[in-house]
Amino acid sequence: MQYMMMFYETETECAKRESPTEAGAYWGAWNAYIGAMYEAGIVVKGDGLLPPSAATTVRLANGERQVQDGPVAATKEQLGGYFVIDVPDLDAALAWAARSPNLTDGSTELRPVLPPLQS
């Protein structure tokens, strides 16, 4: 079964990517985590994302198109990356989610991927 793991990070956590003192540990932890997933042969696809400051959002308001800088909602935790994994069940997916480095002060959401529609 395929699950999308969405890694939510706080601003502090995301800022570590650029911090001279903390970037090494930050990327080291992610590389090791992602490496372990690849070695386990469960990765379907996945990426890290640039920070929410690089986001652009489009919506219609009263029929008018609105384009705004930034993410959909200004929440404390923002999406920092995602991986789609193929594992037997939710328990297995949770075991991998529990190891994601963003849990230090963020959270990881798991969503089953919608199976292909029957035609």
């Binding site: 090494g24 540990a25 080291g28 932890a29 090791a32 372990a36 190891r99």
Partner: peptide, 22 residues
């Protein structure tokens, strides 16, 4: 070591292992 880091849940243990790796 990298494999151990990637499989660790506890952030403090992860940090400890990363120091050895560094």
């Amino acid at each position: 070591l990298r494999k151990a880091v990637g499989l660790t849940e506890d952030p403090a243990v992860r940090a400890h292992l990363q120091i050895s790796l560094a």
